[in-house]
Amino acid sequence: MFPARIWREFPQRYRLEAVKNKDTGEVYFPPRYVSKDGKKFNGEKYILPDEGKIFTYTVIEVPPSQFKDEAPYVVCIVELTDGTKLTCQITDFDKDWLDIGKKVRLEFRRVQTDAHHGVLSYGYKAVPAE
């Protein structure tokens, strides 16, 4: 992976930086430059909460090339406590625990390793919080 591509996403992947539309209260993650209804808006930096619950999930058994060594792994959509949703993997869990509605917390993890030689990509993954 070319480093510039992951580097520009660090504020979001490392620190969960979003933008809050001060006019409507909407939260955009990743940040948007125009509101969802196409308007210029007054935005402010907003850090997402790192807790939420599983909105939906799947177990990926057939992975794309860059995750060849990781499968099977679980991808989910987390609904954070402020209502924002994001997609990430779930890690460090027992199979029996996995279900819609389970509480999770976002932790800092390695997401992609680009074989043995490339740049390491870090970001958030969900872990059980109950």
Partner: peptide, 18 residues
């Protein structure tokens, strides 16, 4: 924001199915 985290097409539809 999806594929970076390991999402695949069957995976995304699986999450909708669920």
């Amino acid at each position: 924001y999806e594929v970076f985290h390991g999402a695949t097409f069957p995976g995304l539809y699986a999450m909708m199915a669920r």
